[in-house]
Design a protein around this nucleic acid. Structure first.
Length: 807
RNA sequence: GCGGAUAUGGCGGAACUGGCAGACGCGCCGGAUUUAGGUUCCGGUGGGCAACCGUGGAGGUUCGAGUCCUCUUAUCCGCACCA
């Protein structure tokens, strides 16, 4: 028998699939559909990363198995191609990003096809294609119409020397990644999307979908629903006549209102402008605000760091519940973006407030019993009662919350309030390589107007230079011919928006386009959406749990509300894979020198070897280390599979001596694939192969089953061997084997015999023989060991173990 | 800081609802084949001479704990303009 020539075989079958359109999906109303989705990649210049094939192979395994089971499988692929690295490459090399993108896609396609994924390549989508982003823009216009897109002043990272807006990722240790210059915050007017309007529904929707608990928990925490109260504090500026007399705070602990001894507002709080000419220490305040502007939110909220702040001179607030006059500070531990940007500080019962109060020698008043508030903030409350709190004294925390809210409402000083940590989505980028935002600013109309739908797509015009302008605007702002236009409403001269959309936009609805990828009249036709949606199984990285997954759920719910789609949730089931780490257990990166190139692996071990190893390396949901020794074992296994033809004998049914082993293997592989336990499925096939070799022969029926079970993991070698064993037949047209539950159990089992929980012997019993038989067998196995002992208890686990408790 | 997760032989990892810890693979040791290296095949392989000891650490619940509870340590991932 000739050697296993994987290069020839893999090429042969990839060509075959391509030529026959084997994996092309088409609507077939009589067949049950199954929509399997992988996260489409960003086609970077580095080519496919060795981590990419892991989720793709896993879903490919599922897709191939589902097809063999008779499902009409949709398993598409595409390109999430807008983004920073391409743009930066274009800036550096003066090549149009579209050209860079096309080249990268070509390379990625070659690599992905070389691994033998059963994608329907005819349904490819590309977010940077105008015929695609036409519909991304269309969705934006619908959001705009419904008031869910709005402009807001937001801080951005600003590199002082490069004069560009930086992504958070480009800010390293507070410095610009490129020039290591100073980064400050600059306020810009940005498009925002009101995802917060959907916060409650995004939360509620989680109850109806099949996501892993860790994914749900992350989303729930990210949305961060809390119940509390808004409380209005009057200030000494109340009669100033210029507004800003009252400060509203949000608190989850309104019960501790009597313990509020000062207030803190965020450094960006708008009242600071209103109050500017009345504050007695404006210089000091301004200086602090400037310093705070340089810090990231992350740095600001770190509890370990020393608290900083400045007391506002010439103003105080009044605690509505007891009339106490309390100072007001600005401090960077309060964020403008959460709650109202102002807090009432209760140092006795909040760790951050406590730290701050200690530093500034502010009073700490205990209002909830149970701790020692001089030593630390006491945040527990289950068994506590209120103290030093007037009419709340003696109540539990829960009762106190209800009562104080009632009091606030009666006295016009506040009301109960549900708050979310979730913030609106900053939707503007001052970059070239993104979808243009299809709106214009009309002086005459006095605002932003949408382009009409028939003006879509608004395509990206060619520019000379992809570098953002010196004022921080997108490169499009330099292009007179692009900016100057006429207002679609009144016909007067108007200016186009020059910001573009973030990469998240195109990826928020791509699965819909897969259903009908070339439709010129709609993002997808109703009939096709009705047939294919929702996505039956969506696998992707944990890193997308809170952003991409929430953004796309938000858009989907919105599209559902306007009648564009037929399901409220896009994804029925979500799973997440772990990363492939370098051999050193670290994330692969060029600087660490632990990067593995998939092309080399395919060349040396074959696509089947790569696929098998990535599935075998460990728990799919956890990180796995790359190991060249490990892949060698998988290659060896494939060679042993190939050599099965040397011991092939005739026979159209399982033999008596193999029947149970095959039924067990079919069951194990079938169940494990659905449980994402690919590693144990492969281990079962390895064990089965060992058993076959121990037996010395395999017949045709057995080989056939073996090849079908292995096919999803190693499609090329199995197709080739199947064709050789059954000339004229192709494996992908066969059916997935079935198993008989009864034949998956052995007739006789070995049980453990314990005395006082310690293993003392083993015994052979007939499976399902009952407790009495097991106990008898156990005692026989123990022989004289029990003599003279008093038996207290006998515990029997059917077909597993007998434990005899003695005194 | 907040949020999510992980910890089992020399290594990657198995172990159903609490029931024989270490499946499967790598590596290693011994043997066979081979002029040799490589390949392939067969056998062995948690530690300890043993009683026994062993799932990051300390307690606990239980006839029985890798699995449940309490505390603790270490590591990894995400944190809203990377995708």
């Amino acid at each position: 028998m000739k050697d296993y020539d994987y290069r020839r075989i893999e090429k042969k079958w990839q060509d075959y699939w391509e030529k026959h359109g084997t994996f092309r999906a088409s609507e077939a109303p009589d067949k049950e559909k199954f929509f399997i989705l992988v996260e489409f990649p960003y086609p970077s210049g580095q080519g496919l990363h060795i981590g990419h094939p892991r989720p793709y192979t896993a879903m490919d395994v599922l897709a191939r198995k589902k097809r063999l089971e008779g499902y009409n499988v949709l398993f598409p692929f595409g390109w999430d191609a807008f983004g920073l690295p391409t743009e930066n490459f274009a800036i550096k090399n003066k090549i149009h990003p579209a050209k860079v993108t096309a080249d990268n896609i070509k390379n990625f396609t070659r690599q992905a096809k070389g691994i033998g994924f059963s994608f329907d390549w005819d349904r490819q989508v590309n977010t940077t294609d105008p015929s695609y982003y036409k519909w991304t823009q269309w969705i934006f216009l619908r959001l705009f119409e419904k008031g869910l897109a709005y402009k807001k002043e937001m801080p951005v990272n600003w590199c002082v020397s490069c004069k560009v807006v930086l992504a958070n990722e480009e800010v390293v240790n507070g410095e610009c990644e490129r020039c290591h210059g100073e980064v400050t915050r600059k306020v810009k007017s940005q498009w925002m999307l009101k995802i917060t309007e959907y916060a409650q529904r995004l939360l509620d929707g989680l109850e109806s979908v099949d996501y892993p608990e860790r994914v749900k928990a992350s989303q729930i925490n990210w949305i961060g629903r809390s119940e509390g109260a808004e409380v209005r504090f009057k200030t000494s500026f109340v009669s100033g006549g210029e507004g800003g007399g009252e400060l509203t705070v949000y608190t989850t602990r309104p019960d501790t209102l009597f313990g509020a001894t000062y207030m803190v507002i965020a450094p960006e709080h708008p009242y600071l402008e209103k109050w500017a000419n009345r504050l007695t220490n404006l210089d000091e305040v301004a200086e602090y605000r400037e310093k705070a502007a340089k810090k990231s939110d992350f740095e600001r909220t770190e509890i370990a760091k020393e608290k900083t702040g400045v007391r506002l001179g010439g103003v105080f607030a009044v605690n509505p519940v007891n009339g106490a006059e309390i100072p007001i500070f600005i401090s960077d531990y309060v964020m403008l973006g959460y709650g109202t940007g102002a807090i009432m500080a209760v140092p006795a019962h909040d760790a951050r407030d406590w730290e701050f109060a200690k530093k500034f020698a502010l009073p700490i008043i205990e209002v909830v019993t149970g701790g020692d508030v001089e030593k630390a903030a006491f945040t527990g409350c289950e068994t506590s009662v209120m103290t030093n709190s007037g009419f709340l004294n003696g109540l539990g925390v829960g009762e106190a919350k209800a009562k104080i809210i009632e009091w606030l409402v009666q006295n016009g000083a506040g009301e109960s309030k549900v708050n979310f940590k979730l913030r609106d989505w900053v939707f503007s980028r001052q970059r070239y390589w993104g979808e243009p935002i299809p709106v214009v600013y009309c002086e005459k109309c006095g605002g932003w107007n949408a382009l009409p739908d028939d003006a879509l797509p608004l395509t990206l015009p060619p520019v000379e230079n992809y570098m953002p302008s010196e004022t921080g605007e997108s490169p499009l702002a330099n292009l007179e011919s692009f900016i100057n236009t006429t207002c679609p409403v009144c016909g007067s001269p108007a200016l186009r928006e020059t910001d573009t959309m973030p990469q998240w936009a195109g990826s928020s609805w791509y699965f819909l386009r897969y259903c009908d990828p070339r439709n010129p009249d709609a993002l997808a036709s109703k009939e096709k959406l009705d047939y294919w949606m929702g996505v039956d199984w969506y696998n992707g990285g944990m890193e997308h749990t809170t952003l991409h997954l929430l953004y796309s759920r938000f858009w989907h719910k919105f599209l559902y509300d306007i009648g564009a789609v037929n399901t409220d949730e896009p994804y029925k089931k979500r799973t997440s894979h772990g990363m492939i780490l370098g051999a050193d257990g670290q994330k692969m990166s060029k600087s660490r020198g632990n990067v593995v190139n998939p092309d080399d692996v395919v060349r040396d071990y074959g696509a089947d070897g790569l696929r098998l190893y990535e599935m075998f390396a460990g728990d799919f949901e956890k990180a796995a280390l790359w190991s060249s020794a490990g892949i060698k074992g998988c290659k060896r296994f494939l060679e042993r599979v190939w050599a099965l033809s040397e011991i092939l004998i005739d026979g159209g049914e399982y033999r008596e001596e193999t029947r149970r082993a095959f039924h067990k293997a079919v069951k194990k592989v079938s169940l494990d694939i659905h449980a994402l336990k690919f590693n144990t499925a492969i281990a079962a096939l390895m064990s089965l192969l060992n058993e076959i070799y121990a037996l010395g022969s395999i017949n045709k029926a057995e080989l056939r089953t073996f090849l079908i079970l292995l096919n999803p993991f190693a499609p090329h070698i199995t197709e080739e061997m199947f064709e050789k064993a059954s000339p004229g037949c192709v494996l992908n047209e066969q059916s997935w084997p079935e198993y008989d539950e009864g034949l998956c159990r052995d007739g006789e089992v070995e049980i453990a015999v314990q005395v006082n929980g310690r293993l003392r012997a083993r015994a052979l019993v007939v499976a399902g023989g009952g407790d009495a038989a097991m106990t008898a067998a156990a005692k026989a196995a123990l022989g004289t060991a029990l003599d003279g002992k008093e038996i207290v208890k006998e515990i029997v686990v059917p077909d597993k173990l007998v434990n005899i408790v003695v005194r």
